[in-house]
Design a protein around this nucleic acid. Sequence first.
DNA 1: CGGTCCCGCCACGAG
DNA 2: CTCGTGGCGGGACCG
Length: 386
Amino acid sequence: MSSSPSRFLDSGSKHHSYCRKQKSLGVLCSNFVSLYDRDGVELVGLDYAARQLGVERRRIYDIVNVMESVGVLARKAKNKYSWIGFSGIPKALKELKEEALRAISGSDGPCEKEVLEDEDDDSEGQNHDDGDEKFSKMDNASSSGNHLCKARSATDNRKEKSLGLLTRNFVKLFLTSDVDTISLDEAARLLLGDISDLSNMRSYNAAKVRRLYDIANVLSSMNLIEKIQVEARKPAFRWLGTEGKTKTDTGGTFAPPPIVKPLNKRAFGNEITNVDMKRSRLCCTVSKKPGKAQMRSDDLKECNLTAQKQLSTKSGYAFGPFCPAGMTKVDGDVEGKGERSTQDWESLACSLRPQYHNQALNELFTHYVEAWKSWYAELAQGSYNL
DNA sequence: CGGTCCCGCCACGAG
DNA sequence: CTCGTGGCGGGACCG
């Protein structure tokens, strides 16, 4: 009612302009993860998260939707999700893959169709993996790419385009093929279905592609995929899967970013490590091995992410510049029932920027990143011989 | 200048 | 009507 720090981009000083990147879904997702990825956390309150991260609730919905699609979160109730963590990813992926394969064997045209298939949205229903894909309700299995019934318009039509569904289909693309890289173009083509009507498909595609960017951002911030550039103007996504970021390949160009060491102790189960399995050929332009995928600023982001991760992970998290200064040990779920403590959090959230609470540090880090970036640019150009 | 994608309006369904 | 969700696309930002 009175202390709602709605939007305070830069409280007080207006240093540079307004770093758009600082507000990207990817960064937001990273912060979200570091906020919840620790022992004992199991409840995720959307309002709380929004406040802590200093963003609108609308944004939380975005990341929560894709995170739910990969099993990191599960909807509990209105406004409430339960945090499963990265350990939930393998299971989710496995289910997605099964779903996808099932769908493929069911029909004949694996590609071009929307590998649609919705497992329904209803909350919980933990293991609904008891084989058998009966559509509990004539859900939106309009995978045929046709408006077969047209009846369900409103709801189904809406659901059909949900971020969550799109995310699952996007992931299935990787799980279903043996390629690890898919260009944005292809992904869009496959996910959007092969439309022939070019009339207003133009704008339709544009809209979907925008969603694809959203999804890619949060997935990459969770290290599930990585954005690379195959050709100028041709962005692509590479699947990292449960392998996380262990790639030492890329020609062994350089040592990982200075900020942190490998670490990478994702608690992914070892069930499916690197999905390959049956290969159903997608008909898309893909590159098997990136060879010398050129690094980009994305790597920086990742490095940043990793740093955060290390600084604030499960056991013995040592808050670095990424967490609120006043933050001490949090016991139990962050949201908990401690209504009182919430008060404190609130005030904390007001006085601190969610990510780099310290302005100086923030700038320093930014500066550092810039330096690194330019250094990298040189290296990429080859103007550095060694 | 074209690729990205943040922002927030507003529709929809439930209570 | 209010509220929780989340589709959607205008247009700002960035390389």
